[in-house]
């Protein structure tokens, strides 16, 4: 059995699913509204003769059928960022507001981090954490190229994330160490077994091993748990992966709602998607995991993705 055949019972139309997984993805860019507007960026692409197709769900996410994202004038001004279409979903679901405090728990190389900052009009605070120093230099290069100023970067294991650096001066208004400098929102876009990126990187299926799925699920649970702990009551946590494996998706949500004060909440998504599943290989999950969304490559001609929205209740 191939890795993708493992998920055949989950998809409505396996033949279309397999066919979509075989096709390469078009280049896609997101317009960086910290430095420009969607209208200006589109005008710049027209001026330099690069064809684009607007996606029907997001005016600032553009497909470039004939070009690479990184070699044109709007790119060198930091107006565009190469980012796969479904990768733009979780930041939109988290919907951070200007002035809020937001944690990006697995931030490098920064596509979603910079999208969070743009949604906040580069105001407030994004704390961007990653445990890999090499990937953090890519993150910093991207945040600087895109003009992000509301970011603090930490290199640490997200499971042990410390809020300490983010207190304010005792004589200044704002959160202090004593009140925990809790986050309003957190994005938990975890490392995963990545079958959803097969259209970009077919080798991902050769490297897939069940042992690794089980190992990485433990890390995912730890990071999601820390994010719920670090977010204030009433705050929002978004959990996302680019894997189809229920062990890394619904099972991780099931763990979080059992161990921490939070619940899975419904959300609208202007893309075709399937609900989270409640049964997998003899395991059953809470009914509320059906509020999560599974995005398969054949549904919107994108990569594969999983996204859930949680509200912190206590």
């Amino acid at each position: 059995m191939t890795v993708l055949e493992r998920y055949e019972p989950l998809v409505d139309d396996p033949a279309t699913f397999y066919a979509a997984c075989e096709r390469p993805l078009p280049a896609v860019v997101r317009v960086n509204t910290i430095k420009t507007t969607v209208e200006q960026a589109r005008a710049a692409l027209e001026e330099v003769g690069i064809a684009y197709e607007a996606t029907d769900w997001h005016p600032g996410v553009l497909r470039l059928p004939d070009a690479q994202p990184g070699a044109n004038w709007p790119y060198v001004h930091g107006w565009l960022h190469g980012q796969e279409e479904v990768s733009a979903v979780p930041a939109e679901v988290l919907a951070p507001q200007p002035g809020e405090r937001v944690w990006d728990a697995c931030a490098a190389p920064g596509s979603k981090t910079t999208q969070l900052a743009a949604l906040m009009d580069d105001e407030g605070l994004v704390v961007a954490t990653d445990d890999n120093m090499g990937r953090v230099s890519a993150l910093r290069s991207n945040t600087e190229r895109l003009g992000v100023t509301n970011i603090a970067v930490t290199v640490e294991d997200a499971r042990n994330h410390s809020l300490k650096p983010f207190s304010s001066q005792a004589d200044e208004p704002g959160p202090t160490t004593a009140d925990g400098a809790m986050y309003d929102r957190a994005l938990v876009d975890v490392p995963c077994s990545c079958e959803g990126t097969v259209r970009k990187n077919p080798d991902v299926l050769d490297e897939w091993e069940l042992d690794q799925v089980e190992g990485i699920a433990g890390v995912q649970k730890g990071i999601l748990r820390r994010a719920v702990q670090a977010t204030r009551a009433g705050g929002t946590v978004v959990y996302s992966t680019c894997t189809f494996a229920p062990e890394e998706n619904e099972a991780v949500l099931e763990y979080a709602i059992a161990e921490e004060p939070c619940e899975i909440v419904p959300f609208d998504l202007p893309l075709d998607a399937s609900p989270g599943i409640t049964e997998w290989q003899g395991e059953t999950y809470d009914d509320s995991v059906t509020r999560a969304k599974r995005i398969y490559p054949h549904q919107n001609d994108t990569g594969g993705f999983f996204c859930a929205k949680l509200e912190v209740t206590g």
Binding site: D122, E123, G124, L125, A128, V136, L139, R140, T143, E144, G147, V148, T149, N150, I151, A152, V153, T154, V155, P165, F166, S167, S168, Q169, A170, E172, G174
Partner: peptide, 19 residues
């Protein structure tokens, strides 16, 4: 480095706004 807003100084982090 320029950073939106403020934090208690010094800050022990690996990046703050942009150089």
């Amino acid at each position: 480095w320029i950073f939106y807003g403020d934090l208690a100084s010094p800050v022990d982090v690996d990046g703050l706004g942009m150089m």
